[in-house]
Design a protein around this nucleic acid. Structure first.
Lengths: 195, 195
DNA sequence: CGCCAGATTGAGTAAAGTCAAATCCAGTGG
DNA sequence: CCACTGGATTTGACTTTACTCAATCTGGCG
């Protein structure tokens, strides 16, 4: 199912994953880094109580796979057909340099996520989530290959609430939803002001 | 009061801040790192809507001050009397090495925070918060010099709810609260299972 | 064309927010 | 040392929000 494509240069090869496949699993040895080429990846883990938690979504040019331990504490799953470039654990200093360059933006990104999720209302969270995606995509038309359940787990709300809030946004003319996995943001300023 | 960190650079001096003082402000130039020696530091910022958001708490041996931009996007405030060691922007490679060692744990820490805040109920969030602190402190007696308002902002709930949940925990014998800024965890396993 | 998982909608319930009042505490000054 | 005082915290009553559970709808796929 996984294909390896050679790129023109000496860069790392691209692996292609289909919807739902795991790039790595919770407990797998860590060390490699992964860069999304196309599609979407989500980090997920299961709590002791059996609940699914989603730790983040990654889109093209995002880098994931960081761990401070020797094991991954999340699984990484492809949402929709997804291309990944793998960077094996670094040995030469040039590669180390590259890794460090990627790390600080990841930290900033995580901080943004934290603030989205700590917002008071479901409306504010979903609005902030959509605004964040528009900014990262530089495009009003969002492709969301993941399930509503994953968005809900990520935002810390129920999937039914995601549905209802999205409907409210539609009725208010803030977004349009041409199909399940596409959302077009029609009024970004209004979305940004929701709290 | 003077401790030696395992770093090749000359020992940095300790600055002492009193309750509520700012170590740096939102918008200040970034670059230096800060290590908490005693007390507690919190990161805070104000949204466009005027709401206060708390990005994290830092206790002894925690390092903060990371930015991927040239400006701080949070303010850092002392909660209670707090000692800080400042590490100026690195120039020698040894110091760079030290900085990178600190960075990955910060990322992991942030990920834990994200999962605490994305929990469904206020009880689960406060319980996870307390468990996290016990683990970091290696001590059942928690010192929480920050205001309830800051804990509430951090957890994404109202201060009244923090109070009420804490009372429920007290009544259930899970914690005792000898005074406002001290919480003793009496039944950690039970707290860990709340969700 | 029918099937099934995912998504949406609806109704009732539980949880958390808001606003207001009461209480507690730390810091101040007598 | 102790009373005073203003801000912080807690408690109470009520309202709003979001969750739960169940039913319905939709779209992709054999």
């Amino acid at each position: 199912m996984t294909q390896h494509l050679k790129t023109s240069s000496a860069e790392a090869p691209i692996s292609i994953y289909s919807n739902g496949m795991k790039i790595y699993r919770q407990g797998d040895p860590s060390g490699s880094l992964y860069s999304v080429q196309f599609g979407c990846v989500l980090l997920a883990r299961v709590t002791y109580g059996g609940n699914r938690q989603v730790g983040g979504f990654f889109f093209p040019n995002d880098v994931f796979g960081w761990e401070s331990e020797t094991e991954h504490c999340f699984s990484a799953e492809a949402a929709g057909t997804t291309g990944i470039r793998v960077f094996a654990p670094a040995r030469d200093p040039n590669s180390t340099e590259w890794r460090h360059k990627q790390l600080l933006p990841s930290l900033t990104r995580l901080r943004e996520q934290l603030l989205i999720v700590s917002l008071g209302t479901a409306d504010a969270r979903l609005a902030a989530f959509l605004c964040d995606l528009v900014e990262r995509n530089r495009n009003d038309l969002l492709v969301l290959p993941m399930h509503r359940l994953d968005i809900a787990a990520y935002l810390g709300i129920s999937p039914e609430t995601v549905s209802r809030v999205l409907r409210r946004f539609k009725d208010a003319g803030l977004v349009s939803v041409p199909s399940t996995h596409y959302i077009k943001v029609l009024n970004l300023p209004a979305l940004q002001q929701i709290q």
